[in-house]
Design a protein around this nucleic acid. Structure first.
Lengths: 161, 161
DNA sequence: GTGCTTGCAAACCCTTTGCAAGATG
DNA sequence: CATCTTGCAAAGGGTTTGCAAGCAC
């Protein structure tokens, strides 16, 4: 059993909850995901692998993983939840390309520091923060500049897959 | 006709769209709102005033107002959209109390500058950004510290209304 | 008139929940 | 064996959409 599993099990027991097969499978899948994922991504993968694990269980388990600090919820401006691992990933924020949807992670200590200052100034006790910058990535920006008439949108990209 | 209306009308015409009664009513209501609002807030107000204006029309109109720059969408970590006016409101970000839900607006030029730098470093062309800091407001933090056993949650606050 | 808009209701997506059957400690 | 958990399917919010009737230009 690895670190995440021990952390999760300890958390569950501390709450009088049980470390079930399903919860273990979800934990493993979450830690096998690269980058960001949605609740539905997990459910779909389980279905594809032929593992019986209902959407409801996924939706019930993710908040537990958030509560014990193994994952965090991130906002990408869409009206549904996205998650990412916290372990082995220091805190970071996201740059999102509004054209192709590409997400770039970045970390900036100065910004973090200034956020602490803002909190202090307004008498807030900081708990978490999320900074989401939207713009055009290098690739898309060049394409827009070179041919303003035929811009590929995120929809086009998705259709192309 | 005031500035917002002229802006909206000009935008609509430029797109071959029409400046209907409903669109004018929604625009006015939006500019009569204080702070932040949700699509449903508008629909509900119209209903209360006895004005016939369907939810569908509100949902169809808000994106138009975003596209012409009169309002912007803001994320508060809930899985549905919130909006705020842009005119007369310089760019700002939000501090959100995780306990009582209070939202405080703030503006920090240094943070803005650093965001520009981050974009430049990653070859992004900045389009917009949103910084959302969650924490405990002064009031809630004191209450938590003084009585760790009886913390009022946002749910409690809502129930109390 | 032509074409964009509206209202309605149904559909949609993401998420939550009640319940009876099944697992866990 | 008491309790927590699961899967199912139904319900729940917020949002979108097809369609026929209604307006704007």
């Amino acid at each position: 059993m690895n670190t995440e599993e021990r952390t999760f099990e300890r958390y569950l027991r501390s709450q009088g909850l049980k470390f079930t097969v399903q919860r273990k499978l979800i934990l493993r899948k979450v830690f096998a995901m690269h980058d960001h994922f949605e609740a539905d991504d997990l459910a779909t993968e389980f279905r594809l692998e032929g593992k019986k694990l209902s959407r409801a269980t996924v939706y019930r388990t993710l908040p537990l993983l958030v509560q014990c600090g193994l994952i965090r919820e991130v906002q990408f401006g869409e009206n549904h939840a996205h998650y990412e691992q916290t372990m082995g990933h220091q805190h970071h924020d996201h740059l999102i390309c509004v054209t192709c949807g590409k997400v770039v992670e970045f970390c900036d200590d100065s910004i973090e520091q200034l956020q602490d200052d803002v909190c202090a100034k307004h008498g807030f006790q900081l708990e978490s923060h999320s900074l989401e910058i939207k713009g055009y990535c290098n690739h898309c920006w060049k394409r827009i500049c070179s041919s303003a008439s035929s811009v590929s949108t995120r929809d086009d990209e998705e259709r192309a897959r």
